[in-house]
Design a binder for these strands. Structure first.
Lengths: 183, 183
DNA sequence: CCATGCCTAGACCATTCGGTCTAGAGCGGA
DNA sequence: TCCGCTCTAGACCGAATGGTCTAGGCATGG
């Protein structure tokens, strides 16, 4: 995905646009324009068109989130430190996007076709994120059960805060999460 | 809105459909079919068409949420009891919808046109809900500041849990909120 | 130096989109 | 009775939608 191949450009463009306006809010031609690719390329790389592309874009975005989680926890001395860093990193990411973007993963959920493949993809992403945060938690000394419980709480709060942040056009609520759930 | 006028039917149909598939995921003709109304009626009652209707539907849904909040807290002996009842009521509502619906308010946010009126409407709804929960909190003995803080935490958690519930097709996570934030 | 893939290119298509417009039903008041 | 107004009714419109299809560029391997 770091390369500049047509396929990569399509995935990147799709992820960016979907997280701004959701699956149905973005037209295929708009994705093509942003990726500077013709229609033929899209349907060559993604035979099922928009739906295929959306799933792959969501997977890519989900992997990105895993990367951010790892970064946040890598040098954290405690679980609370890691969680706090994560919230701040996400707030920064939100600010960079102009205070509007959502995560492509849930954008697809809320907006995509009533397709079980879409729903399942989102569920899988959540599970991956929770597992990853929990893994860092146990590494940092939490009991496995407690780590899992706290990881899920953290991700629930992040998801809710992100939505509120969009409504308010302010990332403050993301930065405020640690004060709420790490008391 | 309890009446069966054409206008009411339009609002209800729009709210139901938007919360299932978001603003762009629903066509005007589909709303018309569900409401059993012709196009002329829509553009008579809502001169700006779909956008107007969406705002009004979101307002209506927001009022419904306020009603649920009041119901949950009306006979609650403590804030924690009220918050717990609220989570269970919402979980039941989620189950009734077949485990798929989101709230129309945030569906519009994530999906609607990049229109500031839409964003502002969502922000207003959140503020109303937080204020209402906080009001019940102070009535039940919390200090105003603490009530506001805990109300916001509760609504953040509900928002996040709702999204996760949709992904998992299970309302369990909504019922589990009290155990996470009322510790 | 041509043959054989992969990939790009974009014209083209049917369908659906949100929205406009004219016509008239139905009703309350003069 | 007939006017005037609100609301219903749906034909109709241009634009945009997602998707298909044929043609050709261009590299690689014989």
């Amino acid at each position: 995905m770091t390369d500049h191949s047509t396929k990569s450009r399509l995935i990147l463009a799709a992820a960016e646009l979907f997280r701004m306006r959701g699956y149905h809010g973005v037209g295929v031609t708009e994705i093509l324009e942003r990726a500077k690719a013709p229609k033929g390329s899209l349907y060559h790389h993604f035979p099922n068109g928009k739906a295929d592309l959306a799933i792959v874009a969501a997977e890519w975005a989900s992997d990105g989130m895993v990367g951010i989680i790892d970064e946040a926890f890598r040098e954290a001395p405690t679980y609370a430190d890691g969680a706090t860093t994560l919230c701040h990193k996400l707030a920064k990411f939100f600010d960079l996007s102009g205070g509007w973007d959502g995560c492509p993963v849930s954008s697809i959920l809320l907006d995509g076709p009533e397709n079980d493949a879409f729903r399942a993809q989102v569920a899988r992403s959540y599970e991956t994120w929770v597992a990853r945060v929990a893994q860092h938690g146990t590494r940092l000394g939490l009991a496995p059960e407690e780590a899992r419980f706290r990881a899920e709480t953290l991700l629930i709060a992040i998801q809710g805060a992100w939505t509120l942040a969009r409504a308010r056009k302010s990332s403050d609520v993301l930065r405020g999460i640690p004060a709420r759930i790490l008391a």
